[in-house]
Each structure stands twice: as structure tokens, then as C-alpha cells.
Design a protein around this nucleic acid. Structure first.
Lengths: 189, 189
DNA sequence: CGATTATGGAACATTGATGTTCCATGATGG
DNA sequence: CCATCATGGAACATCAATGTTCCATAATCG
């Protein structure tokens, strides 16, 4: 009696996730780590990794898709269209910061958006753009700063904060507080 | 009649520099680029690269030393101990920004300082620390922001600015202006 | 319990980057 | 112009990561 392997639930989905998560952490810290390293980090045999992702590139694509989705849901959760723009930005920072190594990976691999042939403009991108322009309009974000630059600043500061915790042993909430504070100050007109 | 190869001048030094520069540019953009890529970028045979740097690790060490020196002289040029702290920071940003791919490489390889067994605290590091503390003291830099965090901010913003020019085609002076403006705003009390 | 599925590990083939050796050709400089 | 130096390229050896196959064992689930 056969039963097709269920792709979306059960054991199979769980180890898939384990590998994916381990790959994100491992590759975020060392982009040239071997698949053996990833397997070890996932607590799984190297063979198993190949069983789920035939080639390295397949794994990378999967990471791309996974992170795109993660960023998407995370962005939704921040409800960028609600309340004052500057506070929505705060919420977004906090959410992104929670992504941890996932955020790190996304930061270091901006070409990630291309991997899955999404429209170059994700819904998350658009929501952020709307938010920043809203801030421009209602005077809570310095209009001198282009939308693109504000986006760059956001990511760069989050990256700085994340590294700050990793390398200086600063507690996460402290780093996040510094980040939010600095970002606000940089953006106010 | 023998004459030892002169290490510091002439043809030899010139191609060495060419390889070093090409390696910085190439590896800053793709850390896993092959030595063949570096050779091509330098307009030089692969053999020649090995002639100057026996192993890949030798090349990396040399880059480390080269960049440490570059950062050192660049920092000196900014004369951090002269004039108002905030203006000295401006000068430092401008100088670092000029380093281009060299800066990019340094940003992406913070372990660079270890490579050459320097004291963990470079003179450049110390000068920057002094500068920030001076700013704290004379009230031009928000004392809420720890010295380490200000340093992180500085590098992160420069990185953001540099990427901004690379990926958005923004003219360098525009990106630098945005960077300086945002940094000032973030740091003022 | 018994069938199906998931896994780990060994063994092996393939591949691309490395590192080395050698030689012919060009460049340099006294 | 001639001796020395610098270089490029071919040929080769080595190595680590990759990708594949196979099998025994463990986990899962009806």
C-alpha cells in the first residue's frame, strides 16, 4: 500500500526546516561553508541534505524563497499602514531584528529577490515605500532623504545593531534600543 | 653580476600592487572568487599571482596588511585631533569613502586586524576612540551613544552609502552627502 | 506488530580551485 | 647589445567540496 510522501507536514517537513534553518545560520556567518558544515549544524547526515536539496544551488534557492516569505509575513505583522509613520518604522525594526541570522543572510545577499523570479518589487518593498512616503508627507521623516536612502539606512542600522550584539556581547534589547534611537534621530527633519 | 631583486621599487613592486589592488576589488565583490579571476582582473597570468603570493592565504594576509596601512594613513590624513569633533568625523567619513572597494573589503572582513598580529587596538582605532570621547565631552556627540556604537554607526552608514552608489547608480558625492547628513543628525544630542 | 519511510554512513566518481614545475618569450637596464 | 629579470602559458599533481549509489538500521504509523 503506497502513500505519497506528504510534502507539507510531518517528519519530512520538519527535517526540511531544520536543514533550512541551519543553512541560514551557517551560511550567514560563513558564506563559503561546506554542505557538510550545514549538515552538521542541522544535526543531520550529509546524505540527507542532498536528499532534500539535490544541488547546493537548490538549497540556496530554497533559502531565498524561505526568507522572502519570512520577510513578507514579518512585514505584514508590523502593520506598516497603521498609526504614525515613525512608530510603524519602529515596529518594523523590532520585527526584522527578531529574524536574527535570517536578517543577516538577507542583508548580505541582496540578490536574494532575484532567485525566485519575484516581481522586483515585493509587497513588502511596496509597503515600506508607502510608509516612508507617508512619513515624508506628514513631516515625520526628513524629505531631504530619498526613499531609497531611508531604506538603506534602515537595513544598515539593523545590521550594525545585530553585529554589535554578536561581537560586543551587548544584550539584544540594548542594541535594538540604540538602533531605534539613532534611526529616529537620523530621520526626523 | 648579480643584483638582488629590489623589493620596494621598480617593476616588481608595481605588479605586486596591481595584483593587490585587483584582489581587493575582486574579493570585495565576491569573496569566493578564484585566483584566476584575480589574475584576470589584474591583467596578469595566474602563474604570476602565485609567484608573488605562494598561497591564497598569503594573498589574504598581504591584503590585510595593505589595508591596515591604508586605513592608518587615511586616518592620519583626517587629523582627528584637530578642530571640532563633529567636523573631524566628517573629514574621516570623506577619507574612508575614498577608499572605495578597500573600505568595502575592510567592512566585510573585520577579522582583518587579527591577520597581521597587530595590537588589537590600532593607532587608528585609538584615534577614533579619542575623537568620539572628545565629542561626548564637548557635547557635540550624544553621550547616550556608547563609543563602540558610534563606531559601528559610522561604518554601517559608510557601507550603506557605498552600496547606494553601486546599486542605485547614485553619484558618489550625493551618497556621501546623505551619509554625512544622516550621521550628524544621528549623533547630535 | 509489520510495512513503509527516513536516515546515516561508506564508497566512489566528478569537478573546479590550487599549487608546482618548466620553458620560451619579452622587457629592462647597464 | 647582452645578461638578468619578469612573465605567460602549458602540463601536471593534489585536494576539498560535490554529487551519487547502495545498504543496513532506525523511526514512524497504520
Amino acid at each position: 500500500m503506497y502513500r505519497k510522501p506528504m510534502d507539507e507536514t510531518g517528519t519530512r517537513a520538519r527535517t526540511r526546516r531544520a536543514i533550512l534553518d541551519a543553512a541560514v545560520s551557517t551560511l550567514a556567518r560563513n558564506p563559503s561553508a561546506s554542505l557538510a558544515d550545514v549538515a552538521a549544524a542541522a544535526g543531520v547526515g550529509r546524505t540527507t541534505v542532498h536528499r532534500y536539496f539535490r544541488e547546493r544551488s537548490d538549497l540556496l534557492s530554497a533559502i531565498g524563497a524561505h526568507l522572502m516569505e519570512l520577510v513578507a509575513t514579518t512585514t505584514e505583522r508590523a502593520r506598516l499602514d497603521d498609526g504614525p509613520a515613525i512608530e510603524a518604522l519602529d515596529r518594523l525594526c523590532q520585527e526584522y531584528f527578531e529574524l536574527g541570522d535570517g536578517f543577516l543572510f538577507a542583508f548580505e545577499n541582496p540578490q536574494l529577490a532575484d532567485w525566485e523570479s519575484w516581481d522586483s518589487e515585493t509587497e513588502a518593498d511596496q509597503a515600506l515605500t508607502r510608509l516612508i512616503e507617508r512619513g515624508h508627507a506628514d513631516g515625520t521623516i526628513d524629505p531631504t532623504l530619498s526613499t531609497a536612502w531611508v531604506g538603506s539606512l534602515l537595513w544598515a542600522m539593523l545590521y550594525a545593531a545585530w553585529q554589535h550584539t554578536r561581537e560586543q556581547g551587548v544584550p539584544k534589547h540594548t542594541a535594538l534600543r540604540l538602533c531605534l534611537h539613532s534611526l529616529r534621530k537620523a530621520l526626523t527633519p
